[in-house]
């Protein structure tokens, strides 16, 4: 008997639709953040319900030897998943590069979600600093996952800087506003058909995630929408299913939209109920 797939995994032979990120196969197209949950246990339950293969983590100041860093490390290590450390909160190239170097040692991975923030109100990426930090870190052997805008020229420069994956925003971090510029996202997908594109930030509802996947994006990274749900584990499962649905729909091929209605039931053979002619 074939085992049922976990949430977020395709009900297909395991390697048929795997996502390749820096040469590694990933079997879930949902990446989940570990922040903002009401407790570590609720975070663990949400991660498990999501079926995610990659979770994002961060570094903060060690708080006087209270052991919180070590406890969090033990928790995420026991999840047995790929860790993607971020440089959240960094505003300069220097801060981001140093944080990435420190994260590589602590989390024992050369993967880094690179964030260089330009503005605290919008959390918009500083794309100039981002490209420069990506160039430096790629040169040091990091596998850079840049949190970027949907700008084509920025995307080109990030690829030239050594990035093999791009993570454009759907909307500003934490807003939950969904795909605010689907045209730009569609353009990005069309211009870079072979580059893994992960929508990162701004996803608020499973329908947003499904919409991005239907556009052909390769994966979704989210945090707040799950962590701040009334029931994070159930929301994680909802997102996993929507991401799977969007992926299947993209692979199946969506029908083209039309301006005019078109009947789905054949007109041929339609009965006539006209009254017979009395003459």
């Amino acid at each position: 008997m074939t085992a049922m797939p976990r949430s977020g995994e395709l009900p297909l032979p395991q390697d048929e639709d795997a996502l390749e990120l820096y040469g590694e196969s990933v079997h879930s197209r949902m990446l989940l953040g570990t922040a903002l949950y009401s407790s570590p246990e609720i975070m663990r339950m949400a991660v498990e319900a999501s079926g995610a293969g990659i979770v994002t983590v961060s570094l903060r100041r060690e708080s006087g030897g209270d052991g919180s860093g070590q406890r969090f490390w033990d928790l995420v290590r026991n999840l047995g998943l790929r860790l993607l450390p971020n440089t959240a909160g960094c505003h300069t190239v220097k801060e981001a590069v140093t944080t990435a170097q420190m994260a590589r040692e602590v989390f024992e991975t050369d993967w880094v979600k690179l964030e260089v923030i330009a503005n605290d109100d919008t959390l918009q990426p500083d794309v100039f600093g981002l490209v420069e930090a990506a160039r430096i870190l790629s040169g040091e052997g990091f596998k850079v996952f840049p949190y970027c805008t949907d700008d084509l020229s920025v995307a080109e420069r990030l690829l030239t800087a050594g990035c093999e994956v791009l993570m454009p925003w759907a909307a500003p971090i934490g807003t939950g506003r969904g795909l605010i510029n689907p045209y730009a996202l569609r353009s990005l997908r069309a211009y870079f058909p072979k580059t893994p594109l992960i929508v990162d930030a701004g996803i608020g509802a499973p329908s947003h995630a499904a919409g991005a996947m239907e556009l052909g994006f390769d994966a979704i990274l989210l945090n707040t929408a799950v962590a701040k749900a009334k029931d994070p584990a159930i929301m994680a499962e909802a997102f996993a299913k929507s991401i799977l649905a969007g992926r299947l729909a993209y692979r199946a091929g969506l029908m083209p939209q039309r301006d005019m209605a078109s009947p789905s039931t054949p007109l041929a053979g339609l009965a006539s109920f006209d009254m017979p002619d009395a003459s």
């Binding site: 953040g33 570990t34 922040a35 903002l36 949950y37 975070m43 994002t56 983590v57 961060s58 570094l59 903060r60 100041r61 060690e62 919180s68 860093g69 070590q70 969090f72 490390w73 995420v76 450390p85 971020n86 959240a88 944080t99 420190m102 602590v106 989390f107 971090i173 945090n223 707040t224």
Partner: peptide, 10 residues
């Protein structure tokens, strides 16, 4: 001096 340790992240 900065001394950092693992934390939750998005």
């Amino acid at each position: 001096i900065e001394i950092l340790s693992p934390r939750q992240g998005g």
